[in-house]
Simulated scan of single mutants.
Amino acid sequence: MEKVKLKLLYSELRPELDKIEKELEVAVGSNSLLLNEASLHLLQAGGKRIRPVFVLLAGKFGDYNVDVMKQVAVPLELIHMASLVHDDVIDDSEMRRGQTTVKAQWNNSVAMYTGDFILARALEYITVIEDPKIHDILSKTMIEVCRGEIIQIEDKYKLDQTVRDYLRRIKRKTALLISSSCELGATVSGTDAETAARLRRFGYFIGMSFQITDDILDFTSSDEELGKPAGSDFIQGNITLPVLFARKDPLIYGRLKEAVGKDMTDSERKEIVELIRTSPALEEAKSLSDQYLNKALKELMLLPKGNANKTMRNIALFIGKRKF
């Protein structure tokens, strides 16, 4: 239901998004039946398509042409998809968006090569753009996303990491790809440098808010709403902001230390989730998410007014308050 509400906010982009969706289907197509099935399995699991949406909206601040926008929207979404497949292997995840992951449906090898294939397709798609600045932005983004993945592996099960460590990680894992979506949409549509920079900062701030909200929902949502067990991040060793804030309570910290990295029963998992859920940590995390959201909205206030600006504002507000 929440996903439907979000899509209504950018319903005017539906024709362009349908075109991008068809292009994504073409992009993940392969002569290999196995690769084709695995790639389509991931694509058809759906998603909010936030990155293509921000490419399109940022492009409306300049000389908008959907066929040009498509050339960066498709590879950006492919990079995101590839990172999800690889994530599921690293985290040993069985479910995503209520469906089995590629690694669960097939195996780790198929998942890794599917991710590599989708990433290669992204690189192939971007070659049609001649502007070296576009390639520079995209290549640096990909490098940082990979660094974020490595940092996440290094930080696994570390209850003593700092909030700064967490923010550094989600910046690379989530915020930069959204930030680049906005910057690339602005750049390919020929906006001035100041507008592109403001859109880049907007994307970064909303990306940070988006991920913090995601990490809060991992504790506040039900298993059914998440499409996976609540508290999955903690089970997989990913120490998120709610846990970092909750550990300030000595009793909670002691229980977290006992549980982290251990095989938990379902009742133990629910106990950890309830500990976080009833602590002040979620409100603290929400407060930080709201700070990033407000910074994003301030950037929009300094951008030209119009439908694109209004839609970006509505999406930003929805992302910061969402319940899915």
Results as ranks from 00 to 15, higher is better:
L167V: 09
L184C: 06
D131K: 12
R147Q: 15
R168M: 09
Y157D: 14
W106I: 04
E149D: 02
F117L: 03
K158R: 15
Y113H: 11
L184V: 09
D116F: 03
L177I: 15
L167K: 11
E154H: 09
K140S: 11
L123N: 13
N107V: 04
E154C: 07
Y113K: 04
R147C: 09
Q105N: 07
D131A: 06
H135C: 00
T174G: 03
A175S: 12
I151D: 11
A120M: 13
R164D: 13
I134C: 09
S181L: 08
W106C: 03
K158Y: 08
L167T: 07
S180N: 12
I178L: 12
H135V: 01
E124A: 09
F117C: 02
Y157K: 09
P132T: 06
N108E: 15
L177N: 02
T174R: 06
K156C: 02
R168V: 02
I178C: 01
F117E: 03
L167Q: 10
D155G: 10
G148T: 09
K158E: 12
V128W: 00
D136F: 11
R172Y: 14
Q152K: 07
R147I: 00
D155Q: 15
W106N: 01
T127Q: 14
S179A: 14
L159W: 04
K156V: 00
M142S: 11
K173Q: 10
R172L: 14
I150D: 08
S181D: 05
T174K: 06
K156R: 14
Y157C: 08
R172Q: 13
A186Q: 10
S139R: 07
S139M: 10
Q161N: 01
K171L: 13
L167W: 08
S181G: 09
T162Q: 02
D131Q: 11
R164Y: 05
L123F: 15
N107T: 05
I118G: 08
V145E: 09
G148Y: 04
A122K: 10
L119E: 06
K158H: 13
R168A: 07
S139N: 09
I129G: 01
L119P: 01
D131R: 11
K140M: 02
P132Y: 03
T127L: 12
L177Y: 04
V145D: 09
I170T: 05
N108T: 11
S139Y: 08
L138I: 06
I178A: 03
R169N: 13
I143D: 10
K156Y: 02
V163I: 15
G148A: 10
L184Q: 03
I178T: 03
Y157E: 12
S181F: 04
K140F: 00
T141V: 15
A175E: 03
S180A: 15
V110T: 14
S109E: 12
D160F: 08
R169Q: 13
D165H: 12
K133L: 13
W106G: 01
E144F: 00
Y166I: 08
R147K: 13
L176I: 15
D165P: 01
I153L: 14
K173H: 09
I151M: 13
K156H: 02
G115S: 04
Y157I: 01
S179R: 13
N107E: 10
E154I: 00
M112K: 04
